[in-house]
């Protein structure tokens, strides 16, 4: 298990050895903040000291931005042949999977946390509820883990990064739309309500919303953690030869 550390370190620093990290961080922060200030976000118009208008776009933003981080995790190793190097070093597949996933997750968490000037802005303009802001951050980071688990898995299935990106986009979109209100209404029209409800339960939105309202419900935490656990398990299976 202590073999995770070097893998994690190499992968995490790897983002910063290439322009990937900087391009990603700038793009993510610009997009997320400008969405909040846009008329769809209505950050100023709302006139209240909270970050709802910032975090509400996260499930949608993550849909594009997490596959961009996750697509290279395994595809790149497979394409360049370094997978062969990695798996002939004295580590288990689980070590490698965990090390790489945790590095990607830490990087995403860093991206999310770098939005703290938004929180400072809110604090300057009013008296925000810091508890709600904290649960927003916890929820966003957990959700990023869920998305990344899916992306790591699809990345392990192919050596082509574009295929990996598209696959993870589709998989994440499915998990997202299951909870999107207009889509669930359609589902409820076609399927029995109980089935439609059960399906909606697999959505990122369904489980992220409580966090934005300041609620940390164990069932939402369990959802994200078990999604991560399940996708990482499949990830190990996909890499075994």
């Amino acid at each position: 298990m202590n073999q995770i550390t070097p893998i994690f370190k190499r992968e995490f620093l790897g983002y910063f050895r290439t322009p990937v990290a900087y391009v990603f961080l700038v793009a993510f922060l610009t997009l997320s903040v400008s969405l909040a200030f846009s008329r769809y976000g209505g950050f100023f118009k709302a006139g209240s000291a909270e970050m709802d208008s910032y975090f509400t776009f996260f499930p949608w933003l993550f849909l594009f931005i997490v596959p961009a981080v996750g697509m290279r995790l395994w595809s790149e190793e497979k394409r360049s042949g370094t997978a062969e190097l990695l798996f002939t070093l004295p580590i288990t597949i689980l070590d490698a999977v965990l090390g790489k996933f945790l590095a990607g997750w830490a990087f995403l968490a860093l991206a999310v946390l770098l939005s703290f000037p938004m929180a400072l802005t809110v604090a300057y303009l009013g008296k925000p509820d810091w508890g709600v802001i904290a649960t927003n951050y916890v929820g966003a980071i957990l959700m990023a883990g869920g998305y990344l688990g899916v992306c790591a898995l699809t990345s392990a299935l192919t050596k082509n990064q574009v295929v990996s990106f598209v696959l993870s986009l589709v998989a994440c979109a499915a998990l997202l739309f299951l909870g999107y209100s207009s889509f669930t209404e359609v589902l409820e029209g076609v399927l029995p309500i109980a089935v439609a409800d059960a399906l909606a339960n697999f959505s990122f939105i369904t489980h992220f919303e409580p966090f934005t309202q300041g609620i940390i419900d164990p069932k939402d935490v369990v959802f994200f953690l078990s999604l991560i656990g399940f996708t990482l398990f499949l990830n190990v299976v996909a890499l075994e030869r």
């Binding site: 190499r10 790897g14 290439t18 062969e84 004295p90």
Partner: peptide, 20 residues
């Protein structure tokens, strides 16, 4: 893992992480 600890292996085309 025990075998990999004892062995030095050079894969074909000597793959390495190019950005390091």
């Amino acid at each position: 893992v025990a075998v990999k600890r004892q062995l030095g292996y050079l894969p074909e085309n000597a793959p390495a992480y190019p950005e390091m």
